[in-house]
């Protein structure tokens, strides 16, 4: 009994030892600062001249360790606990970075991982698809349906909701097909055919299911389903997913953001167009021309979101 306990203690010590060592004499916190900055926080004050020696630090992205990132400047805070590394080029903060620091005694402390929280990264995909890269106003996709169904608020809402549902379902199905059939069998050239087929299939399935399960909802939303097929946003999402090689959660966030962005754009536009009906517009601008001009103004307003970073 006693011996088993000793073994366990020894094993536990063995496992915990590296952790304790790291915590004892090394960086207590690491995070990204500005777009070209990594901030390291030490538990106790360290010597300024030592900390400011750029030769002590090696930094690279986890994916390609051969490419060392060049440090331009090193700032140390007044209390000597915070060291901020400023890089020549801005960092891709979506990727995990690895920082190694050589100590005074020549020992090298390997691999401090600097990364954003994954949830924050997922939310940033959502926000980006929703506002910063809104599919209608900054990527100019889905315009036929956008101008066709934004005349009334109720229509716009119905279209947006149906659209989001179909988009999420078809994007996730496309992800499965892409990951488990197209990539393993090297059939990447069939992307377009497979994705458009899946989208049509989803629309048909939603149509059939909705007709049986909830006829009232079908009567109000059914007409939009046909329009969904002829829309480029719905095929753009799987294509973007494939070219960025997104995983399941990222694909979900992208499709949700794209659908939500489309809903937002439709609702904004329909609110304006309901008022345009009452306005006194020159006859040459009636109908589509004025709608295009309004959309142009929205697009310029959405430019204001560019560079937005919440997480």
């Amino acid at each position: 009994m006693h011996r088993i306990l000793t073994y366990w203690t020894a094993a536990l010590l063995f496992i915990l030892a590296p952790v304790c060592l790291h915590a004892a004499d090394f960086v207590s916190e690491q995070r990204f600062g500005d777009e070209n900055e990594i901030i390291l926080t030490y538990p106790a004050a360290i010597d300024k001249t030592v900390a400011q020696n750029p030769a002590r630090y090696t930094v690279f992205e986890e994916a390609d360790p051969d490419i060392r990132l060049e440090i331009q400047k090193i700032d140390v805070s007044d209390d000597g606990r915070k060291v901020s590394l400023l890089f020549k080029e801005s960092l891709n903060t979506a990727k995990t970075h690895v920082v190694s620091v050589r100590g005074d005694d020549g020992r090298e402390i390997e691999g401090i991982q600097v990364k954003k929280s994954y949830l924050g990264y997922l939310l940033s995909i959502l926000i980006s698809a929703l506002l910063v890269n809104n599919f209608v106003f900054t990527k100019y996709l889905g315009l036929c349906v956008f101008f066709g169904t934004s005349k009334r608020k109720t229509t716009a809402k119905g279209m947006g909701v149906v659209f989001t549902i179909v988009m999420v379902v078809s994007a996730l199905m496309s992800w499965f097909f892409y990951q488990f059939i197209l990539i393993p069998y090297d059939l990447n050239f069939l992307q377009i055919v497979v994705f458009i087929g899946l989208v049509s299939l989803t629309v048909q399935a939603v149509d059939t299911i909705l007709r049986k399960v909830n006829p009232i909802l079908f009567n109000s939303f059914g007409v939009f389903l046909v329009l969904v097929i002829a829309n480029c946003v719905i095929i753009a999402v799987p294509l973007i997913m494939a070219s960025n090689n997104y995983n399941f959660a990222e694909t979900f966030m992208l499709s949700l953001g794209a659908g939500g962005g489309f809903l937002l754009a439709l609702y904004l536009m329909s609110s304006v167009r309901e008022r345009l009906d009452l306005a006194n517009i020159p006859p040459t601008f009636k109908g589509l021309p004025i709608a295009f001009i309004v959309a142009g103004q929205f697009a310029m307003a959405f430019l204001g979101f560019s560079g937005l970073q919440l997480f």
Partner: peptide, 21 residues
């Protein structure tokens, strides 16, 4: 600028409408 595409298309449609009228 990208967003000007909306304006150009809108103005050209209005122009063609004007000719027709």
């Amino acid at each position: 600028l990208p967003s000007a595409g909306f304006f150009v298309v809108g103005l050209m449609m209005a122009f063609f409408n004007w000719i027709e009228l």
